[in-house]
């Protein structure tokens, strides 16, 4: 399954970014193979609609789950329409790897 987690840097051990639409980076992870890659977020320096642009990236990358600090109304509307599940960081998560671990242990809460 493909996961996308918002991140402050282009690395799986980097701190998570609580912003979804304006996250610095997205870490795309295949939870089966544990392979990951960093995707730049063009929305970080764009005017309105960053949430929609970020949702588009998630959809284009065939993500099934996105994990971030919070989701705005436009982003959550687009992700819902795409059937992508949204989950939020909980306590004890500081890095993208933590978020992945918490996800695989089923400890994350669904957004909304």
């Amino acid at each position: 399954m493909i996961l996308i987690i918002s991140s402050q840097q282009a690395d799986i051990n980097s701190p998570v970014d609580n912003r979804f639409g304006r996250a610095q980076w997205f870490i795309k992870i295949d939870s089966d193979t544990k392979k990951w890659e960093a995707l730049t977020n063009p929305g970080v320096n764009q005017r309105g609609g960053a949430g929609v642009a970020a949702a588009q990236i998630a959809a284009n990358n065939k993500a099934e789950v996105v994990i971030s600090g919070d989701f705005g109304p436009n982003a959550s509307g687009a992700l819902n329409a795409a059937g992508i599940r949204m989950m939020t960081f909980d306590q004890g998560i500081s890095t993208v790897q933590d978020a992945l671990d918490h996800f695989t242990q089923g400890k994350l809460t669904a957004f909304g």
Partner: peptide, 8 residues
């Protein structure tokens, strides 16, 4: 303005 998205 990202007013459009291609979803599914």
């Amino acid at each position: 303005y990202h007013a459009l998205a291609e979803i599914g």
